[in-house]
Every structure is written in structure tokens, then in C-alpha cells.
Design a protein around this nucleic acid. Structure first.
Lengths: 202, 202
DNA sequence: ACACATCCATACCGACCGGTATGTAATGGC
DNA sequence: GCCATTACATACCGGTCGGTATGGATGTGT
């Protein structure tokens, strides 16, 4: 998605339509199995439009990562965590909010899906996905450290390692629940994660 | 893999070769992107052999789950956990053993890879993969309960929920490390998991 | 030793894939 | 109002995919 403040020309709108449709297709079928024809059918556009905005399918996929997925993470996780004066509470709020939206169970986490599929196969995908993961971990670790200074997290906790584990368990929960296609499992697993976060305080 | 005790005829050997090559191909590229031509090239066999033993690619994939992946899990996890008189120690041994083999970082967990890719798309895959996951959770939960009776696990712990979370975090760790392509991250994350397991005792 | 099922190789097929070449309509600067 | 550039549509291409039809080699029971 482009920056929404600038004057949205028609061309940018079509580009956004392509990105959104590509995101949905990739989210469901993965990047490799994503069909350009299906994406175009869902947008009402044609190959002329697609290859005008993107030189190849590969670049379309990278753009989905850089723009669509990045924005989702920034909005729901990065920004709230970074701006919060009460990091632990904010983290728990985020987790509870995610817990309350089990619609993610059907198709899983878009970021994790792409990581699992593409990281061993494509350097450029891996690089971009890894950068997002690193941002996630750094943001979360920093939030934990701030909470630590406030006395909300035990001093012996290694915040970087804890952040890494939280994200891993997070993605793990979503993945397992997605396999089971069970919102109940999703919430049970997420409750354990929330409990783990609480155990960091003590 | 067939039961190895029975007289391995030539036909069974070719079937096993197909299964092994299919397993490797699927492990690297996923099921959908797995190329039958590549599999056959790696075995030196032809389509005649493949479609004699398996009616379709779909069935080949299911056989990989039912036979190859099932056996890996049974050997390294299910059987050791089930037969152990000291479940917690055995679990920690298993985790440490997995920690010591970071080669899984390159391609990730075959079971989890397939779950993430196929569970939303194919009922039969999902059903089989889910059954393996359920066996895993049940086996682990039962081990934790036995440890609980021995006083090795706190009584207020819900063993089913703990098992679910351990497996989720487990798969999560492998997945994150696979994206980072970092054995160090893998081991750091796994250390956190091992620590969590220890925290169940206390 | 003969009949027959098993086992596997070869050749081939239609479908769909990502990608391209080319034409045309809309847009924006002057 | 003219023109060049942008923004798309249409038609088409080679390649790879999973799958099939057929024939020959290899056991296997009797």
C-alpha cells in the first residue's frame, strides 16, 4: 500500500488492487502456488496491468512483503509496542487482542507462511522476511527491557532471548491451531503464551 | 518405509526409493511445488514405476506422511517418551538431542512444513497431519502426567495444555531459526524452551 | 515349461504456468 | 489542442506440470 496522504492517482489504485489480491492469493496458496491468472481474475485486471507495475511475479511477491505485510505488523505490533509507556501491559493487550481474533486460524500468519515456504528457496525473500522478524524481535526485546527498568520484569531475564522465544511460541501457536483448524486450540495455546509472559514478571 | 522384517522384494525397494526421494523433494520445495520429474530423476526411475505404486501425486504425498514422517516421529519422540520410566529426563534428553542437530535449520521440520502448506487446502492431508500432531500431544501430555505423579512436575500444571504449548514453541523455534538460517538462533530459542520445561518442575 | 499377473520403461497428451509483443486508450505537460 | 508518456488490454508463446496408454521385461504359481 502506498502512503495514503499523497494524491492517489488511478495507477496507484490499480497497483494497490494488485497487491491486495496478490496478498490474499499468496496467503491462501503460498507464493509458488499463487496463480497470476487467479489474482487478475479477482481484480478484473489483465496481464498488461500486472506487468506494467511489476517486472515479474517474484517482484510482486517481494512487494507484498515490503508493503502489505509490513504495514500489518507495524500497525498491530511495532507501533503500539514502541509508543507504549507500559510495555508489558501493551504486550498483553496485543496478545489478548490476537487471541480474540481466531479468524487467523484458517490461513495462518502471512509472515510465517512465507517464511516457511520461501526462506530456504530464495535469498531475497529470506532477507526481507528476516528483516521483519528482526524488527519484531528488537521491538519486543526493547519493550521488555523498558518494562525491566520499571520493575515489571525480573532482572535476571535476558530480554532478547525472551523476545525470541515469545515470537517463536507465538508463531508456533498459530501454526498448530491452523493445522487443527481449531479456534479452541488456538486460544488454549495462546493462553499458555500469555501465562508465560506473566511469568516473566513474577 | 515398509516393515523391514518382511522379505523385501524388489518392488518394495523401488517403492521405498520413491518414498525417500519424494520425502526429500517435498521437504525442500513443499508438496505442491514438488516435481514428479525431479523425484524420478533422483531415483533413476520413470513414471511407469511411480504410477504403478501410486495412483496419483496426491497419494504419494499422503504415503510420505503416513510412512516416512510417521516413522521419524515414532523413532525419535513417541517411542522414547512412551517407554521412559523418567519422562521429564527423557523429554529433556530429546530436546537436547534435537538442539544438538541444527541441520534441521536449513529445511525445517517436515511435519510442520506440510501442516503449514497443506492443512488449509486439503482435507486428507490435514486429517493425517492432525492425527500425528494429536499423537504427539497425547504422548507428551501422558509423559508429563506420569512425571507429575512422580512429583517431578508441579501439581497445578495442566499437562495437556503444557504439552500443546511445548509442541507449539518447539515448532515455532524450528520455523524461526529456519527463516534466519541460523544455528545459533535455533539453539538459543531451544534453550528457552528447555528452560520452560524445567520451570514446570520447580 | 507355460500362462499370467506384477513391475517398470517409453512416448505422448492437454492444461496451465509465467512471461512477452503489440496495440490502444487515458493522462499530463506545454 | 497537440503530443508524448503512461497505463492498461489482447493475443500469443515456450515450457513444465500431472497424468495416461501401451508395450516389454520379470518374476510366480502350477
Amino acid at each position: 500500500m502506498r502512503t495514503k496522504t499523497q494524491t492517489t492517482k488511478q495507477a496507484d489504485l490499480t497497483r494497490d488492487k494488485l497487491l491486495e489480491a496478490a496478498f490474499n492469493e499468496i496467503h491462501r496458496y503460498g507464493f509458488q502456488a499463487a496463480s497470476l491468472s487467479s489474482i487478475l481474475a479477482n481484480t478484473g485486471l489483465t496481464k498488461g496491468a500486472l506487468y506494467h507495475h511489476f517486472p515479474a511475479k517474484h517482484d510482486l511477491g517481494l512487494a507484498v512483503v515490503d508493503e502489505v505485510i509490513e504495514q500489518i505488523l507495524a500497525e498491530t505490533i511495532f507501533i503500539p509496542l514502541r509508543d507504549s509507556p507500559h510495555p508489558i501491559k501493551t504486550l498483553q493487550d496485543i496478545l489478548r487482542k490476537k487471541r480474540g481474533k481466531p479468524d487467523i486460524v484458517e490461513l495462518g500468519c502471512p509472515l510465517n507462511n512465507l517464511m516457511q515456504e520461501m526462506s530456504p528457496l530464495d535469498e531475497q525473500f529470506r532477507h526481507r522476511l528476516n528483516a521483519l522478524m528482526q524488527r519484531w524481535q528488537d521491538t519486543l526485546a526493547d519493550a521488555l527491557r523498558r518494562a525491566q527498568k520499571q520493575g515489571q520484569v525480573r532482572k535476571e531475564i535476558n530480554c532478547s532471548m525472551a523476545a525470541l522465544f515469545i515470537i517463536s511460541a507465538w508463531e508456533g501457536c498459530v501454526g498448530i491451531a491452523k493445522n487443527m483448524q481449531s479456534a479452541k486450540t488456538y486460544q488454549q495455546c495462546f493462553d499458555q503464551l500469555i501465562e508465560y509472559v506473566s511469568s516473566l514478571a513474577n
